[in-house]
């Protein structure tokens, strides 16, 4: 079943002549693994932001889970689609690593035990549990990235978009990240990874979509679940 559908979507940033995303049509199933690749400035992150409703397409239509994207509030989109941005500092706003992961769970109304369980589970998985009381802003870029990944994973979205998730993380944690992405995919979550890291994408083994100058120039077809 199609979860995200883009129909002839285009977007041009203010003051730019060239469209960042040009007439992109895509159909993404609920439990799909996607590797989105392309050179810098090819429109990958813009496409992700369009799917998340952070940018509004000037032409075309985006449908999420059967409804036009405009019908959802950003919070409702966030409940369905988890997003890990390229720059993790943009998504850190709590006073401790633990609270950063607990933030969304508290707002979801989860109980104390459940919050503790999720925080511990993901922080231990990435071997970050010892940093739970640290101020997130003081962590290294890689650690910040992992904390944001943990915070988004803990919310258990139906679809996950990760923009350059391996940019600053070490080989050991990269392996861990692949493991957990495969695990959540097996459990039914769709995953889209935007990356230049071909080694990571090969291990991830998703439907490969390649973008050039805002257009989808290669789509390896829907992944067989």
């Amino acid at each position: 079943m199609t979860f995200i559908s883009l129909q002839e979507v285009s977007y041009t940033y203010n003051g730019r002549k060239e469209a960042a995303v040009k007439n992109v049509s895509l159909s993404i199933a609920e439990r799909e693994k996607i590797s989105l690749t392309g050179l810098n400035g090819s429109g990958k992150s813009t496409l992700a932001k369009l799917i998340l409703g952070l940018l509004k397409p000037q032409t075309g239509k985006i449908v999420l889970d059967g409804l036009p994207l405009g019908k959802y509030s950003l919070a409702k989109i966030g409940e369905k689609v988890g997003y890990v941005v390229q720059n993790p500092s943009q998504m850190l706003f709590n006073t401790s690593v633990f609270n950063e992961i607990a933030f969304g769970l508290k707002w979801k109304g989860k109980g104390k035990d459940e919050i503790f369980h999720f925080c511990k589970k993901y922080l231990e998985f990435f071997e970050l549990w010892h940093l739970r009381d640290e101020l997130p802003f003081n962590l290294s870029e890689g650690q910040k990235q992992l904390v944001v990944i943990c915070a988004v994973l803990a919310l258990q979205p139906r679809f996950l978009i990760l923009d350059e998730p391996t940019k600053s993380i070490d080989t050991f944690r990269k392996k861990r990240l692949i493991d957990i992405l495969q695990e959540i995919w097996h459990l039914g979550t769709g995953v889209m990874v935007i990356s230049h890291d071909m080694e990571f994408l090969t291990a991830f083994d998703g439907r490969r979509i390649h973008m050039e100058k805002g257009e989808v120039v290669e789509d390896a077809g829907r992944y067989q679940n």
Partner: peptide, 14 residues
């Protein structure tokens, strides 16, 4: 970005 980040974690600011 922070506004977006908070909302994408499921918090409807309105």
């Amino acid at each position: 970005n922070i506004f977006h980040g908070i909302q994408l974690r499921g918090v409807d600011l309105r």
